[in-house]
């Protein structure tokens, strides 16, 4: 049963086989984008509405809605487990992309929780809060949304380039532009609620639309 090859045939065979798995996009990836996309869009939209309607002094309560993001995790875990059971091949690109996204989540958690702890500690222990201090602590939060937007724009952009899937690349570029635009408009009144609205739109462009397109592509490729 063993065919003996000549040298040319050997090289042709290697060339043919080595790339078989290269562009394989794991079935189920689209659903993960949709899960986080809709969650992100929904929460930012609700935060936007609350920020507009809550009185100014208690407006920051709206941000507690973001803790709801944690509820996405059980669903994410379930989707990934299902993908793992069905997976026939794991490429190096997939391995790399998994770690890019995990690195992104860690970066977001480090920044958000670092700032939260700092803010809470200062309010707890600094009895003589000066107006200047207060302003600086408020001002650092205003850059959080553009920063996070830029960060996940980066992950979308890299994923799109790695999988050669254009909608993700475009989503990433739009997140970059939105982030830049938000940084330029931090001094405008109403900027905090406006940030949430932009975040919602970027979630639709960066996650929801590419997610649906991925789903359709998966169905077509099978």
């Amino acid at each position: 049963m063993e065919n003996v090859l000549n040298e040319k045939e050997s090289l042709d065979l290697i060339g043919q086989m080595i790339n078989t798995a290269k562009k394989n996009l794991q079935k189920g990836t689209g659903k993960i984008f949709l899960l986080w996309g809709y969650l992100l869009a929904g929460i930012s939209l609700c935060t936007f509405i609350l920020l507009v309607y809550l009185p100014r002094e208690t407006g920051y309560y709206a941000y507690f809605l973001w803790f709801l993001m944690a509820f996405g995790y059980p669903f994410h875990y379930w989707l990934v487990k299902k993908m793992r059971n069905e997976r026939l091949v794991k490429t190096y690109i997939e391995k790399l992309m998994t770690w890019v996204w995990i690195g992104l989540i860690v970066s977001i958690l480090v920044v958000v929780f670092g700032m939260l702890i700092d803010t809470v500690l200062v309010y707890q222990f600094t009895k003589d809060m000066k107006v200047g201090n207060d302003f600086i602590r408020w001002f650092q939060w205003i850059f959080l949304t553009p920063f996070l937007l830029c960060l996940y724009g980066f992950a979308l952009f890299v994923s799109g380039k790695a999988y050669e899937f254009k909608p993700l690349v475009i989503g990433g570029i739009i997140c970059f532009m939105a982030s830049f635009f938000l940084i330029l408009s931090v001094h405008k009144t109403g900027t905090l609620s406006f940030q949430q609205l932009v975040l919602c739109l970027s979630a639709v462009v960066g996650f929801v639309i590419p997610g649906h397109m991925l789903n359709r592509k998966e169905r077509r490729d099978v």
Binding site: E2, L13, I14, Q16, M17, K22, V89
Partner: peptide
Amino acid sequence: QLRLAVISILIGSE
């Protein structure tokens, strides 16, 4: 042929 094909596939994927 077959063993080389197997190794080539595995070189390209984790």
